[in-house]
Design a protein around this nucleic acid. Structure first.
Lengths: 207, 207, 207, 207
DNA sequence: TGATAACCGAGACGGTACGTCCTGTCTTGAG
DNA sequence: CTCAAGACAGGACGTACCGTCTCGGTTATCA
């Protein structure tokens, strides 16, 4: 897995980039199951061993390629920092802020560049525990933490109840969104996310 | 896909059963990715063609095997009906009823006989749209409808707000549970499901 | 090795022939070391497994292909017998008979269709004992026995000394010829083989 | 090939020795085909490039390693000369002299240190013409010349017929011995070599 | 007495082939 | 016509080596 990979100085940066590009392109073009290590190597103009030297599986390659894509696409390529400093906006209106962020998430999950790899990693992670944990830790956790932070701020501002566990509270709107996307159970719209926020904030019971 | 399979009278019932058993056993023993059609055929003492004649893929075999398992395990084998007539209990206390059902779901998802096949089908469905829709329709939909029915009853009883869409409302507690299980993001306990019900019913905002 | 291969009825005759043809053609065109199992399979329009199912190595394929070639080329394809009934001619003049046969051998060893495979099998047999024994038994032994038979007849006719061991005696002219061919130590001509026969029959010592 | 290798003074003697030792050891232990350049380099504690800098192939390495071994084992390590001055003894009894030398050859070919590399070089030479010529010139030719010299002396002494070509005459006993060894066609004994000498000297025909 | 160039170990690289595994199709012979 | 058995063409797997190519770190002349 990527966490234990040897970090070597002799590694070819050019090959790494070519492998990322090839992997993402193939997943987008033919889908994850029909993407093969052999195909990635051929498309990247690289020997298969160069892939196996640095990654343990095609899922591992794709995870890193996707992380790299996410990292780069969120950065001004001119002046890149070590880590992006995103945060969910805090306008003082929690409902509005959450709806805005969830709408942005809807857009992102519909972006065809992201959809293929995201689904593939999610699926593989369901079955491969090691990969699953890596996906959660590297891909999901940072975003979830932003929600938790925003909810904590809302607690301080008295917008939500002080006794709530923010890590559970955020699941009330984040998990339904993720489920709908993964399982295609129902339409995936701004209206839906807005509704989720309303339901979650005010509860199902009458008041 | 299983919807288009030829329904033939000459079909060997013994082979069908042997194939289901072999498929479930292999998924449990070596995991879904290392389960192969060839392996299922060999273990079932069946020719490969017999599998390909009736199912289109190993995912299809597994889906039917799992449906069969779920059907049989919920039935008294002596007096089996066409379809089980389950319903979520209605004691008049919605919170208590939901907590009880979710606790039962937790138990079921922890059953090792179910875990392997369930994860495999969930994962495959994420990536293979056709299978995904079949899994949702045959495996999930019946259960979800039970939740929707119970929420509708609760609306009639004035336990929850009348303007809610029950199909969305149920996601507030069902989806977080599913996500935690699929992604192993956090412990999977009665305490957690109880909390979900409380948060969902009463909302995050102070009242 | 070919002696232990499973003899199955379901075997595809068409594939077998295509593999033989491809193997012989490749050895002739690119040489034995650059002939690969993969290449044979591709050229024969056959899966690699079909080769590995019936032969244990490329040497084994080539041995059988070559035996088949030798068998077929010595046969009238219309009316083929189980085993060719060759014999060294017996005109009553041993020297003349041997010279004639050795000249024919020179011609055969120069035939480009035979040279490549023959060298390859000889070389491989030097290093791989199992193959070596198979080559000797199937390829060489029949011919050597013909020499032994002719020498035995010559003994009966009083042409050579009655106390000789024919299996050793024949080596005096056969082995030098083989060595020259294998090691390219010197020209390979009718004159040379004639000389060998003379030296061997009359000895090196003066009489 | 070794004839074109750069002759540089900066060359590391230690590496050269380590490479020879590793090559001979590996051929003895795992056989020639499973001996690899990479394996030789690893065992010798040497970079691969150091091998490719000085030799063109593993066969080339082995040829030089073997020549070195032959040279050293035939030398008093204290007082080494450029070239050993061997000769076949001349006691005046040609048959006895040849039998003695051939018996010594039998012993040498049975020495396990020599057997592996010798077979490997012989086999490779059958298929690779360039290497074959090098093997013959450097390994065989010197010995063959000794036989030719001894036969020439025997001609002068009237022990054998004056019109014989010694380079062909010697093949009558040397080639059968080599063939038996290479092809394992039959036992390889003193009795056999003695017989060869008798047959060759006195001929097959009655006198 | 440095400077500098070749040699050295190490090992990554683009490749080729290996021998195995599995796919989905096809064929055979028994029931 | 179904079935068990299993051969078939095909294709991907992950591994082993090939021969080439840097990379720093010694040597060992010669300037």
């Amino acid at each position: 897995m990527s966490t234990t990979k040897p970090v070597h100085k002799r590694r070819s940066e050019k090959s790494r980039r070519a492998i990322y590009d090839a992997a993402l392109a193939l997943v987008a073009e033919v889908g994850y199951p029909r993407t093969t290590v052999e195909g990635i190597a051929a498309r990247a103009g690289v020997g298969k061993q160069t892939i196996y030297r640095w990654w343990s599986s095609k899922a591992d390659v794709l995870l890193e390629a996707f992380l790299d894509l996410a990292y780069e696409s969120g950065q001004d390529p001119e002046q890149r920092q070590e880590q992006p400093e995103y945060a969910i906006p805090d306008t003082g209106d929690l409902a509005a802020d959450l709806k805005a962020v969830l709408r942005a998430t809807v857009d992102e999950l519909r972006d065809p560049r992201f959809e293929g790899p995201s689904r593939a990693l999610a699926a593989e992670g369901v079955v491969d525990e090691e990969l699953g944990r890596a996906v959660v830790a590297k891909l999901l956790e940072p975003s979830l933490q932003l929600y938790a932070d925003r909810l904590r701020a809302a607690q301080d501002a008295g917008e939500i109840r002080p006794d709530l566990d923010p890590r559970i509270a955020l699941e009330l709107f984040v998990s339904p969104l993720a489920q709908r996307w993964l399982q295609r159970t129902a339409p995936f719209s701004y209206e839906y996310t807005d509704t989720l926020v309303d339901y979650a904030l005010h509860g199902l019971a009458p008041r």
